[in-house]
Design a binder for these strands. Sequence first.
DNA 1: ATTGTTCGTGTATATTTTACACGAACAGGG
DNA 2: CCCTGTTCGTGTAAAATATACACGAACAAT
Lengths: 239, 239
Amino acid sequence: MKTRDHSHPEVGTGAIGTNVVIFTLRDRRLYLLLVNRANNTVQPEWALPGGPLRLGEDIEQSARQQLEQEAGVTGVYLEQLYTLSGGQHRSEQWGITVAHYALFPLHELGAEQTNNGDAVGWFQLDQLPRLRGNDRQIVTMAHARLAAKLEYSTIALQFLPEQFTLRELQEVYETILDQTFDKRNFIKSVLANNFIEETGEKHRNGAHRPARLYRMKSPGKVEFTKWSVTKKVLVRRAS
Amino acid sequence: MKTRDHSHPEVGTGAIGTNVVIFTLRDRRLYLLLVNRANNTVQPEWALPGGPLRLGEDIEQSARQQLEQEAGVTGVYLEQLYTLSGGQHRSEQWGITVAHYALFPLHELGAEQTNNGDAVGWFQLDQLPRLRGNDRQIVTMAHARLAAKLEYSTIALQFLPEQFTLRELQEVYETILDQTFDKRNFIKSVLANNFIEETGEKHRNGAHRPARLYRMKSPGKVEFTKWSVTKKVLVRRAS
DNA sequence: ATTGTTCGTGTATATTTTACACGAACAGGG
DNA sequence: CCCTGTTCGTGTAAAATATACACGAACAAT
């Protein structure tokens, strides 16, 4: 075990790739994007969008490139999740994958095909097909991280357009956490954190009272909240 | 940009290494281990312990190996932190580093020399020398993560021996968060979370009343707490 | 027995969280 | 224009949690 190379003390050689769990929200359901990797086989093989990290390339850049190539999205929230090593797949060589997750705003439509011809599809989180390698594990981590961040950050707003109603915001929380909240308490909690404000406009929707529209005070930024928006969940998670 | 390799869709080729921020606590100060990488130079060059990830090797295994080689520690708490890419150093080639942090219990003594002859030393967190590459950034992340985890997990116990006093536990919190707490409230908070219990034994220390000894109910495990041990900090962090 | 030190404890107040129901505003249809 | 169906918007009281705060108890040394 004395084979360490001191001229380049921190580096070995191997195969590196990046991965992204792209979440979106539609009809009170959490969806994510999968790519069919089985090129010409009958049996589809679904996997997370991802690709190799080229020499000299920045990790986040690489992940963003895949976001654009496979889902046609740019400028969305992206966060590194975890790095896994191992045989990615039965027939594949060993390598490591830097997993990410991204939030795709629900108001933008998703492409059904990648830029390079792979078949892609949006799958409901709780109805995923069999995934390749440890992609399933990555999805679970991504969901857990996202759910945790709802508690103490403004990340939920990344799913919403510039103007949104409080109900829409509440639905983001309820969908991701798979839980319902009391409307009055939810609003109180959100407003207490003081990161959104009324726009003055209203949102007409149907044969009922229109909802007020709100906007983020610091658009684009994801900040920490002073108080947990969903304290109940914090406790439950720990039990 | 259509050069993606579909036979190995997730992997590129590059240089991979792992890194560990090894924390320990002594005299109410947070220390971490650094290695002098300047082999024969006059000018020391301090860096985090780390090394290459060999082909086929598991990431965590690699980090644990460095823990053992450079600090002689085994079986401690280790957690992956973040993966960074870029030129590790001026003269070095591009590569990626999977950064970790580890907690070294204060009661075990630290070696002053690695197994392979590098000079090593424990440095106080707030008195670090200039570090190589982005190691400084990694240290900052590690400290932030550790501090955050004190709030909602039992990670602090990883610094303590099997039996410990409540004051010792409180000092762990105070040192890492750089803050003091009211003794009575701290104890209430810790006991409410219900993850430690009295051993019945006492700890004689000097010419004063001896302190009761406690132990973890689930030794070795790091669990989520029901309530924040230090709620005040949660709020402050967000402001 | 006195001194110096750390240990161990309780209560009152403030803050935060939770539970809970009904009138208001609109569109559509008769 | 009135009625109906629907979602919007709001307040208060009780429970849980967090905070502030001080003094006698237990020991070792002298």
